[in-house]
């Protein structure tokens, strides 16, 4: 489900800005490191992890805003290839910055109160925190759907996605919507990044791993579609789990095989529109 958050951010940014953010995994990783930092700095304060979950995504959203305003905005008019390469450069910069600040070691964050321990279900035991994460997926999905379909901000976003020039002519502040959407996407990546550490570890290299998984998800689901990201994340999650169960060493390959099958039979993704 954490995958869904990241893929949703990637998909929203692409849908509106038409920019493929290769640095999306890096924003996720930045979120993880920030979460670790806040949790450690506030050790002893009750609810320190939850404060981190509040703060870290905001920091990432802020970084996202700075990236959009100062780096992406000047080159929307230039050819697409420069946008890709620019976000690729950000991957390098963010990875190296994280390395400078937090070093190359592994960091871990304890499972927070009140989700310690695990519960038994169907004769298996599940860590409560993982169940909480699973629940987060649909919650965020519904939240985003509501935001986009029901609010004024969402209406503006949809207008700009539909037709940038027309929305601009009708008085929508397009640059501001762009910045907002990019920050929203970054916030989602940051949120995912700060929720994940208790399950796993915070480390360098997660940026690329995550962004590749996200690519698989959006290829499966269709780029630019929220529902597609949701379905894609579910399918990839199940496939990988199944793969881990069958052939642990080749679990990674299962996701790719799935992506290839989708590319052959339905190249625009399960929820995507044919071009």
């Amino acid at each position: 489900m954490v995958w869904f958050l990241i893929a949703a951010g990637l998909s929203i940014i692409f849908g509106t800005l038409k920019v493929l953010n290769l640095a999306h995994g890096s924003l996720y990783m930045l979120g993880s490191f920030c979460c670790y930092q806040v949790t450690v700095s506030l050790a002893g304060v009750p609810g320190n992890f939850w404060l981190a979950v509040l703060v870290a995504p905001l920091v990432v959203a802020l970084v996202g805003g700075i990236i959009e305003i100062f780096l992406l905005r000047p080159i929307y008019k230039a050819e697409m290839i420069y946008q890709y390469i620019l976000t690729f450069a950000l991957v390098l910069i963010i990875a190296e910055a994280c390395k400078m600040i937090w070093g190359t070691g592994y960091h871990s964050v304890a499972v927070p109160w009140p989700f310690k321990g695990s519960v038994g279900m169907f004769g298996l035991s599940f860590p409560i925190y993982n169940l909480f994460l699973i629940a987060m997926g649909p919650v965020v999905f519904i939240g985003l759907r509501t935001l986009i379909n029901k609010t004024d901000l969402g209406r503006n976003i949809r207008a700009v996605t539909e037709n940038r020039e027309m929305a601009n002519a009708l008085g929508t502040n397009v640059p501001r919507v762009y910045t907002g959407v990019f920050m929203l996407g970054a916030w989602l990546a940051g949120l995912a990044g700060s929720l994940w550490p208790p399950v796993s570890v915070v480390m360098l290299g997660s940026d690329m791993a995550v962004v590749i998984d996200c690519f698989i998800i959006v290829v499966i689901g269709g780029l630019g579609s929220l529902a597609g990201a949701f379905v894609g994340a579910l399918i990839l999650g199940l496939t990988t789990a199944f793969g881990l169960y069958l052939i642990p060493k080749l679990a990674v390959a299962f996701g790719f095989i799935l992506m290839i099958i989708i590319l052959i039979i339905r190249p625009y993704g399960l929820m995507g529109e044919p071009e």
Binding site: F14, Y84, V211, I212, F215, V219, L250, I260, P267
Partner: peptide
């Protein structure tokens, strides 16, 4: 063959994905 199937965006995304597959294969 897979990479040129769709638009430029997918090309960028798929080339990166496939090169990571190659890396993983080599690694494992």
């Amino acid at each position: 063959w897979f990479c040129v199937r769709r638009s430029a965006v997918y090309f960028a995304l798929l080339t990166l994905a496939f090169s990571q597959v190659i890396w993983t294969v080599v690694f494992q």
